[in-house]
Structures are given as structure tokens and as C-alpha cells.
């Protein structure tokens, strides 16, 4: 029951974030969205992911967004009715709606073939992970399988992740440094 309630709240958050004209409110609602998503992850037993989502997803993203808003503008530009009713603006709105609905329909069609929610026989649960679950303690001596896979079995993934963060950090520093006046 609580799962369905959480899913309804998260859909409501996404819709509100879409329609908010005040970008600061939209950012805060995005933070709420991330945090409720972390709660849903806990319900689905993904505790490590929930920690990361709550701290990094809800926390750091909101801070970055608010920092960016403080350097730009807080409110979305309010288009007049005439500008909104212009054929070109209306056409682009309708086309994007059509595109989104077609994408959604194709995805729903794709899920029809998927295994049911929580199915132990699903292909996802058949390969690789049984070995992790059985051998983790013997191989690494760590009780938390997620940590063992992250840092030991798939250490190179984490190395790649670190490379991505380093590259992103370098890019941000290069973009935001103060240029010397010539």
C-alpha cells in the first residue's frame, strides 16, 4: 500500500516540477522528488543506493542548482498570451507532446514482454549475480555484497566513475574561472 502512495507522490512531484514558473521552487521540488525516490529505493531493499541518492542526488544536485540560480535568473520568462498562441510555439508544443506520447507507447509495448515484478526466474537474476551472492564472503570477506562488487569485483567501473568526476570537475573549473581582463 505504502509503495503505491509513494509512487503517486513522486508522480505528483514530477508534474509540479514541470509546471512551476519559479525555478527555485522547481529546484526544491526536484529535491523532494529525489528524496522520495530514495525512500522508494529503501522499500525496494536498495539501501546503499538510497543513501547515495539522498545525499548526492537530493543534496548536491539541489545545492548546485541553487548556486546556478543565484548567478542567473530565478523566474522563468513569462510569455504573453499572444506569444504563447503563436503558430510556431503551439506547433512545437504539440509536436513534442506527440513525440513523448509515441515514446511512452513504445516503451509500454516493450514492458509487456518483461518478466513480472519480483520474479526470481527473471534473466536479470539468473547470470553473474548468483555468483556474487554465493562467493562474496569467501572471495572478499565483506558482508555487504554491494560494497564488495563495487570496490572489488568491479573496481574498474569505479575507476571509470572517478575519471568521469575528475573530467567534470576540470570542465567546471575551466568554464567558471575568472578570465583576466586584457
Amino acid at each position: 500500500m505504502i509503495d503505491i502512495l509513494l509512487l503517486l507522490i513522486i508522480v505528483a512531484c514530477a508534474i509540479f516540477a514541470l509546471f512551476m514558473k519559479d525555478l527555485l521552487s522547481a529546484t526544491i521540488i526536484l529535491g523532494v522528488y529525489s528524496f522520495i525516490m530514495a525512500t522508494i529505493f529503501t522499500r525496494l531493499n536498495a539501501v546503499d543506493v538510497a543513501f547515495t541518492e539522498a545525499s548526492v542526488g537530493a543534496g548536491i544536485t539541489s545545492v548546485l542548482m541553487i548556486a546556478a540560480l543565484s548567478r542567473t535568473k530565478r523566474y522563468e520568462y513569462h510569455y504573453t498570451k499572444g506569444q504563447r498562441k503563436k503558430p510556431s510555439a503551439l506547433f512545437s508544443k504539440i509536436m513534442s507532446l506527440v513525440l513523448v506520447i509515441v515514446t511512452g507507447a513504445v516503451l509500454v509495448y516493450g514492458t509487456l514482454d518483461m518478466p513480472e515484478f519480483g520474479d526470481p526466474e527473471a534473466p536479470t537474476n539468473q547470470h553473474v549475480s548468483p555468483r556474487y551472492i554465493e562467493e562474496t564472503h569467501h572471495d572478499t570477506g565483506i558482508n555487504n555484497m554491494v560494497t564488495a562488487v563495487l570496490a572489488s569485483y568491479r573496481g574498474y567501473d569505479t575507476l571509470g566513475e572517478t575519471t568521469v568526476i575528475f573530467t567534470a570537475g576540470t570542465a567546471v573549473i575551466l568554464l567558471l574561472r575568472r578570465k583576466k581582463k586584457v
Binding site: A46, D48, V49, T52, T124, N125, V128, S129, Y132, I133, M145, V146, V149, L150, R154, D157, T158, G160, E161
Partner: peptide, 10 residues
Amino acid sequence: NPLPHVLILT
């Protein structure tokens, strides 16, 4: 299944 958790952490 722990594997999707790891992928999503990244």
C-alpha cells in the same frame, strides 16, 4: 540482486 544496485550507484 546486488548488481543493478552497483551500476546505479555509479
